[in-house]
Amino acid sequence: MQNSHSGVNQLGGVFVNGRPLPDSTRQKIVELAHSGARPCDISRILQVSNGCVSKILGRYYETGSIRPRAIGGSKPRVATPEVVSKIAQYKRECPSIFAWEIRDRLLSEGVCTNDNIPSVSSINRVLRNLASEKQQMGADGMYDKLRMLNGQTGSWGTRPGWYPGTSVPGQPTQDGCQQQEGGGENTNSISSNGEDSDEAQMRLQLKRKLQRNRTSFTQEQIEALEKEFERTHYPDVFARERLAAKIDLPEARIQVWFSNRRAKWRREEKLRNQRRQASNTPSHIPISSSFSTSVYQPIPQPTTPVSSFTSGSMLGRTDTALTNTYSALPPMPSFTMANNLPMQPPVPSQTSSYSCMLPTSPSVNGRSYDTYTPPHMQTHMNSQPMGTSGTTSTGLISPGVSVPVQVPGSEPDMSQYWPRLQ
């Protein structure tokens, strides 16, 4: 039975679970980093996980050691009161100082060594604690504590007292930064006198190289990059290397530039699409467009005044059976039934097929058609009795279509119309 579990990581490298990497692998990681390889490249070359490479390099940059820390136990506290007071002093002298600059000053002034120097995250935590204590304490208590930490007896009751030896409130920041720059020169002199001055200088240079600022491109470089971006948004590694040799930039910087440029292009394309949609959409909808001609068919113009009344309900007709019959029939052209047409008796099958359309009241044959006459024609229609054979009435077949029909004066039988409509 094995005491430890061995495995293979996602890159194909072998590791022992819970145990640190061998010293030979750690040394190779540092050597590759000094030669300029990126952590992701080191991870692929040595088949070590990216997190492990970053952790080893980060500890090497901070402490200069590649040895693993002790497994188990607690780390001794490195942010001692003396170190905290120095950090507060540096922050007062130059409020814009960075944590890694404070760390360098602690090393250069001999406050800490490589073994007990606090990390950048520890210094940031100390600065946050100082800021929170400043908010919790009152103004007087804060000034007393700062005077105690600074070891001075001057008056701290006013704002300019934060910067000793100065009279203009805006000047101390520059003086403090100048003092810090002077301390940086002392850093070089002190570290050069040490035993491991060369190694420390190499480590600091490598650290500065990794902690780079934003790349500033010249106009020629920007023009070359934009020209390549117009050709393709995704250049391959050969195109990037050719462009890197042409404009004297690292291939990694060119790759990052193209990634950022593609993101910018997507944002601009989104804005262009929004403007295009806004320009195509009308600002207001016309009133006429809300009524579609496919839904509402136009009603033909009436030929006679009587045809303006298109349904039985508008003429005072309360018989719903006839109203439904007229509205359900398709529109037909106007025609006239003459008196000489043969009077065919209704076929029983045809009569039964339209039995649902006729009223059940037996008085329908005896009703006159003056009910369908509009009010303004009552006088004219009353002067001509319906009993004469020459009287013409208008029957409504569908809305908007008038059918003048000659009705025999002897017997106005409704059943004569249905064979004609089939």
Rank of each mutant, 00 (worst) to 15 (best):
Ser74Trp: 04
Leu32Ser: 03
Arg147Trp: 09
Gly13Met: 02
Gly64Ala: 05
Glu93Ala: 09
Val48Ala: 05
Val8Asp: 03
Gly64Met: 08
Asp140Cys: 10
Val126Phe: 06
Ile56Arg: 01
Gln135Cys: 14
Arg69Val: 04
Pro95Val: 11
Trp100Asp: 03
Gly110Leu: 15
Val78Gln: 03
Ala33Ser: 14
Asn124Ile: 03
Ile117Met: 14
Asp140Lys: 12
Ser24Ile: 11
Asn9Glu: 01
Arg128Thr: 04
Ser4Phe: 11
Met148Ala: 07
Ile45Lys: 13
Glu133Arg: 07
Ser65Asn: 11
Gly7Leu: 12
Val30Trp: 04
Pro95Gln: 07
Pro68Asp: 01
Gln27Asp: 05
Val8Arg: 13
Ser4Thr: 10
Val48Asn: 02
Ala37Thr: 09
Ser24Asp: 11
Ala88Leu: 11
Thr113Met: 14
Arg69Thr: 06
Asn9Tyr: 00
Glu31Ala: 11
Glu31Ser: 11
His34Glu: 12
Gly138His: 09
Asp23Thr: 05
Arg69Pro: 03
Val53Gln: 01
Val120His: 03
Gln89Met: 08
Lys91Pro: 03
Ile71Phe: 05
Ser119Ile: 01
Ile102Met: 08
Tyr60Thr: 00
Ser108Gly: 09
Asn17Ala: 00
Pro81Met: 08
Leu21Tyr: 06
Ile66Leu: 10
Leu127Glu: 08
Leu146Trp: 08
Val84Ala: 06
Ser74Gly: 00
Thr113Gly: 10
Pro20Ser: 05
Arg92Ala: 14
Ala99His: 04
Ser24Lys: 13
Ala88Val: 15
Phe15Glu: 00
Glu133Gln: 07
Ala70Thr: 13
Gly72Cys: 01
Leu127Lys: 04
Ser54Val: 15
Pro76Gly: 04
Lys28Trp: 06
Gln47Cys: 05
Leu149Met: 10
Cys112Thr: 12
Asp104Lys: 14
Ala79Gln: 04
Ala139Gln: 07
Ser6Thr: 07
Gly13Arg: 09
Val48Ile: 14
Lys91Met: 00
Gly7Thr: 14
Lys55Tyr: 02
Glu62Ala: 06
Glu109Gly: 13
Ala131Met: 12
Val14Leu: 11
Lys145Gln: 10
Ser121Pro: 14
Pro118Gly: 08
Cys94Ser: 10
Leu146Met: 07
Ile102Ser: 10
Ala99Met: 05
Ala37Tyr: 05
Asp140Met: 09
Leu127Thr: 12
Ala37His: 00
Lys55Ala: 02
Gly58Tyr: 13
Ala99Lys: 04
Gly58Ser: 03
